[in-house]
Design a binder for these strands. Structure first.
Ligand SMILES: [Mn+2]
Ligand SMILES: [Mn+2]
Ligand SMILES: [Zn+2]
Ligand SMILES: [Zn+2]
Lengths: 143, 143
DNA sequence: ATTCTTTTTGATATAGCTTATCAATTTCAA
DNA sequence: TTGAAATTGATAAGCTATATCAAAAAGAAT
């Protein structure tokens, strides 16, 4: 049984439902993606260049977007490049980002989530998604 | 006494401190900017094309960024284009954004702000900025 | 008012990231 | 094995924002 059998199964299920095919590239990229928490398409491109020098950047982008549709990834726009967040093994969360070293810490706070709903209700809105990012310095970078 | 005398004063003070010059374009753009809550550079470009067809897009971008440095504006990245937020007459706030019609509602919630600080402290971070955006449907678009 | 230095402007090229295009290749069900 | 349909990789194109640079404008000093 392969290391990422469960996620590979989720992908295959998604592929099956949408008349998409299981390819060597998709397997390769999923395997590498699941070893990361957050990664950009470019980073993944360089990382995989060793294993398969012919893998195209467009394929990386297409495949990471496919993972988003399959629920395995979520695109996040922290800086200039899109970060693909590996959400295969976790639920909703938000982020603390160190502007010094780029460190990203995930957190979940029910109280904040609840207050967001309150704010929305007060203004007649129904929330579908939200984005909460706290930027600052981690303890190491502050000193 | 002009309509935006106070803000024009803030701009002039900033210009004076930084060896920058007061130009016809800067005056024109500030005047138009202060009539908006949120606006993109392109929108402003088209709006002002009537008054001054020769005004360049680069000048709009430069000038709106100048307003940010002077504390009159804040750049926000809601969608694909940067929204310049007119903060000349208000303090910190976050946003509710309707994905149906594009409506933007501003709000401020001290409890959320406080909880954000708590989260940061728990993780050894010192927050310098944050971004909180709630996306959903406004009451009109839900029905 | 004129001169002169510095800043600004507008047109356009360029950058940076992501998606679109398309011929060649691969998948996979029949 | 065959053949229709999807995928891939190379590269062009799209889109927003900034960089470049010669010409124009600002404004302090004369
Ligand atoms: Mn995350
Ligand atoms: Mn605002
Ligand atoms: Zn750090
Ligand atoms: Zn709406």
């Amino acid at each position: 049984m392969s290391k990422h059998a469960k996620e590979m199964g989720i992908l295959k299920e998604h592929l099956g439902k949408h008349q998409l095919k299981f390819t060597r590239q998709r397997e390769l990229i999923l395997d590498a993606f699941l070893k990361q928490e957050h990664i950009t398409a470019e980073e993944m491109y360089h990382q995989l260049a060793r294993r398969d020098p012919h893998l195209g950047l467009a394929t990386i982008y297409r495949t990471l977007n496919l993972f988003c549709e399959a629920g395995l990834a979520q695109a996040r726009h922290f800086g200039t490049q899109t970060q693909y967040d590996n959400v295969s093994h976790k639920g909703h969360h938000d982020h603390l980002i160190c502007t010094g070293c780029g460190k990203i810490v995930e957190f979940e706070n029910c109280d904040i989530e609840r207050l967001q709903e309150e704010v929305a209700t007060q203004n007649g809105f129904t929330i579908t998604t939200h984005r909460l990012e706290l930027y600052g310095l981690c303890s190491r970078c502050r000193h």
